[in-house]
Write a protein that binds this DNA or RNA. Structure first.
Length: 845
RNA sequence: GCCGGCGUGGUGGAAUGGCAGACACUGCGGACUUAAAAUCCGCUGUCCAUUGCGGACGUGCGGGUUCGACCCCCGCCGCCGGCACCA
């Protein structure tokens, strides 16, 4: 009889509510282990089938750690500020706080339904004033240290969300969240000086156990370049400072380019003979969207400033100055020296505008035909006076030193990383605790006045002019200056969603503290997070932001470690089955189509014609329109939480995307049914049976190691193999005990029920993790492959660890091998212990 | 364009120098059943041979190293992801 998953799961969830086996104990003598998953945004749709994948994975890891004797902290919370809730509130005229509460309740129900071992007494909600009090407090500390500042600058503006976006939130020129076009808008914004930490954010990656692609992506995003800053003199006497990574090519600089927004252009305007053209170009550049401005293979445009020129400091040559939008105002100094012979972009521009191209590094093709950009030791400097004859690598320090001695330049490092635009013109976020006084300027709210509560407003609608909904709350906005007591106005923008998630893992350590964001004792005990699993999409957002905040908190002595997370892993997405792909249809459906169209080829051709490329992809993102969305509630109702957990782990390589398959879910249910039947059969004998000993020890080793490496699919496969073996060899109670202990982290409900049924003491989850013995893993006899000239010919049974001679004799005695050897001479014999024999033959002379 | 990852049966995937396809899904056959479902047992890479013994091919393509290559090296092709006028 199949087990009653519904009754069993409810029973054990009730017991866990009472017994609290997942409570973490701050200060406990056992070694600590802090496992973290990214807390969910409680959306109105409820838990997505993608959520349980990382949650189950870390649940398994932490359950194993508990069994290994660790004091485990495995917490959960809700990242509840954000736009979808606000938009829902606008549409349905409900306060976002009420929507949030309802959604959190639903998420809590679903998470408990899946049996995750969270410490439910440490739940954190970023919208709770007792939580965001400390988010605001951290902001004030940043302000005190000069790392939060208000600046007016062109910022990314989402035309649909009516809100500014951080650089990290713009993907290919559109809003990361809603896909609407992003334009540049001049606005006064709160900024966080993340660039001050750029170097440390790169350097400290070296010591961290992050998967390589995360490190790489962060390094690329921060984008460190080394080079030099060089000052050119303009004919007006002004200094033009440029950044270059190739100071060695200075003799080849034949013109300069400023970004259209560069301050000197405005200053020089009265002197310019073509001022009208220049202004027209500036205007055109400003009105372009991000997409247009960064469009690929676009022909270079620009205008030469007529009436001013620059002087190349190395040779005194006068060179023209252009403005062009291929030079960005926000990187380096917003101005470049152009070396068309050795830079592709400069070369392209020079060809278009007829600028001179002078070769200063030899070793490439004709620079009149293409730029020669190699930076290594291939190129030798020419036409460069004192640099001639040096390689590029040798020339860079020589010219840098020369520039420093002459006082016209110095070595310089630049980053692509920009400061973090930190204000949002929306309601449902943390209020920024700052007030603007006419006399005193921006003043922080005194810390004893935190939290600054979000006021109730009539309408949550953002305005087209880019003002926050809070700006209409005059009672709230008008306040007094904390410094002089005079009239002042509150900041009406709120913080971005990334604020609350930048430190939530610290609050879990001590979630109810009202004196500090967490006590020193709790921070010292639990820091750092030992293992953090999350999505790749957060690599240059949440993960980078929280590293920055943590480093800042470390600098001001609040946290004991300079990095928040010791280890970072990442999971792949769960995709849906493509209903239009022939090869992933059910056999019935396939037959139906073949009947309809005459042949398989015709049916496939029909699908390709109807759905295009789409029809050839087996798996696609889940979407309502394709009807392939899987709801965890349905799966748990039909198969139970343990099957759901097991299947999400068995679905494929944890790090890669995987497609949901209803049939494969049934396979996992079948596995649990088979284990259940073994327990129901009433096994006897406390000892491990001789027949099962070797495979049990091998399975313990495999499951133990695979969990640590997040290879859950093969861990489950090993347990399936073990159960298949049990069906042949009849397990004892002692054999079953080990299987249940190994299975417990994966399928905790059914395992506890069987544990009780078999009359074992205590709880399965409370046992010590089973240990394996290498000596007991080996079988008495081994099957070895026998190869002839490297190709498999036969297999032979020999005793384990048999000496080479015995193995070779056994191989030669095999009938097939003997036939192959006949008339041949054995030139060479290769024996790999317990694996194979390879005989190299050649015809006898 | 630059950087990274991947390419294995009808499907999801396993194996990182030693018997390719573990484990599972699907399919086929058998047992049980009045019957069906469920369950249990067996088979299931392709092709040739098939009465039986067997044989050939096979990890995107082409080369190489090695006794031996899905794995390492060189050169291509394709797909996915990140960055992208960053000087």
């Amino acid at each position: 009889m199949a087990y009653e998953f519904d009754r069993i799961e409810k029973k054990w969830q009730g017991i866990w509510e009472k017994e609290k086996p997942y409570a973490a104990k701050t200060g406990d003598a056992r070694p600590k282990f802090y496992g973290l998953i990214e807390f969910p945004y409680p959306s109105g749709q409820g838990l997505h089938v993608g959520h349980p994948r990382p949650f189950t994975a870390m649940d398994i890891v932490t359950r194993k750690k508990r069994m290994e004797g660790y004091n485990v902290l495995f917490p959960i919370g809700f990242d509840a500020f954000g736009l979808p809730t606000e938009n829902y509130a606008i549409k349905n005229h409900i306060h976002p706080a009420i929507v949030t509460q309802k959604n959190i309740e639903n998420f809590t129900r679903q998470l408990k339904m899946l049996g995750f071992g969270f410490d439910w007494d440490r739940v954190v909600d970023t919208t709770d004033p007792t939580y965001y009090k400390w988010t605001q407090w951290i902001f004030l500390q940043l302000w005190k240290k000069g790392l939060a500042y208000k600046a007016t600058m062109p910022v990314n503006w989402c035309t649909s969300c009516k809100c500014v976006l951080a650089n990290e939130e713009v993907v290919e020129g559109v809003c990361e969240r809603c896909g609407s076009p992003v334009i540049q808008k001049e606005k006064s914004q709160w900024m966080l000086r993340i660039t001050a930490y750029a170097q440390r954010l790169i350097d400290d990656l070296d010591e961290l156990d992050y998967i390589e692609r995360v490190k790489l992506q962060q390094r690329n995003w921060i984008g460190r370049s080394t080079g030099a800053e060089v000052t050119f003199k303009a004919t007006t006497g002004d200094d033009i400072v440029v950044f270059t990574t190739r100071p060695d090519t200075l003799f080849g600089a034949t013109y300069m380019v400023l970004s259209p927004e560069h301050a000197l252009v405005k200053k020089w305007m009265p002197l310019l003979k073509n001022a009208a053209d220049v202004q027209a170009y500036q205007y055109a550049a400003a009105s372009k969207s991000d997409l247009e401005r960064t469009e690929l293979n676009k022909e270079k445009t620009g205008v030469c400033l007529d009436g001013v020129a620059a002087v190349n400091p190395v040779n005194g040559r006068q060179i023209p100055i252009f403005i062009s939008d291929y030079v960005l105002a926000t990187y380096g100094t917003g101005a470049i020296m152009a070396v068309p012979a050795h830079d592709d972009r400069d070369w392209e521009f020079a060809k278009r505008f007829g600028c001179e191209i002078i070769e200063v590094v030899s070793g490439g093709e004709d620079v009149q035909k293409a730029a020669f950009t190699a930076k290594d030791d291939i190129g030798i400097l020419v036409n460069s006076e004192f640099l001639n004859g040096l390689t590029v690598r040798e020339a860079i320090p020589v010219i840098t030193k020369w520039l420093e001695e002459k006082g016209i330049g110095h070595a310089q490092v630049n980053y692509k990383l920009r400061d973090w635009v930190f204000s949002r013109q929306r309601y449902w976020g943390e209020p920024i605790p700052m007030v603007l006084c006419e006399k005193c300027g921006w003043q922080p709210l005194p810390e004893d006045q935190l939290p600054l509560l979000l006021p109730d407003v009539e309408s949550y609608e953002p305005t087209d002019d880019g003002e926050s909904p809070l700006s209409k709350m005059t009672d709230w906005v008008n306040t007094t200056c904390p410094c002089c007591g005079g009239p002042a106005r509150r900041e009406t923008d709120t913080m971005p969603q990334w604020a609350g998630s930048s430190w939530y893992f610290l609050r879990y350590m001590d979630p109810h503290n009202d004196k500090a964001l967490a006590s020193k004792e709790a921070l010292d005990y639990w820091s750092p997070v030992d293992w953090y699993n999350g999505g790749m999409e957060h690599t240059t957002l949440h993960l980078l932001y929280s590293r920055f905040w943590h480093k800042f908190l470390y600098d001001i002595g609040v946290v004991p470690t300079k990095e928040p997370y010791a280890k970072r892993t990442s999971h792949g997405m769960i995709l849906g089955q493509n209903p239009h792909c022939f090869s992933c249809m059910s056999p019935d459906k396939q037959k139906q189509l073949i009947d309809e169209f005459g042949s398989e080829e015709a049916a496939k051709a029909h699908l390709v014609e109807k759905y295009g490329e789409m029809a050839e992809r087996p798996s696609v993102k889940m979407s309502k329109s394709l009807g392939n969305v899987v709801n965890p509630d349905d799966i748990v109702r039909d198969y139970g939480a343990d099957t759901m957990r097991l299947y999400t782990m068995f679905i494929g390589d944890f790090e890669k995307a995987a497609a949901w398959s209803d049939n494969a879910v049934k396979g996992c249910k079948k596995f649990l049914d088979r284990v259940w039947a073994l327990a129901e059969a009433g096994p006897e004998g406390e000892d491990v049976t001789a027949a099962n000993e070797a495979i049990l020890h091998r399975t313990i080793k495999k499951v133990s190691e695979d969990i640590e490496e997040m290879k859950f699919n093969t861990a489950i496969a090993a347990m399936m193999t073990l159960v298949n073996e049990f069906y042949k060899s009849k397990p004892s109670k002692g054999d079953m005990r080990i299987l249940l202990e190994l299975l417990s982290p994966f399928a905790p409900h059914i395992v506890e029920e069987m544990w009780e049924m078999l009359g074992f003491a205590g709880r399965a989850m409370g046992q010590s993790w089973p240990q394996y013995d290498e000596a007991k893993m080996v079988e008495q006899t081994k099957e070895l492959a026998v190869q002839i000239n490297g190709k498999l010919k036969s297999t032979v049974q020999v005793p384990a660890d048999a000496p080479d001679e015995t193995v070779v004799e056994a191989a030669k005695a095999d009938a097939k091998v003997a036939r192959a050897i006949e008339g041949m001479e054995i030139v060479k014999t290769i024996v790999v212990k317990n694996r194979l024999v390879n005989l190299i033959l050649r015809p006898k002379k």
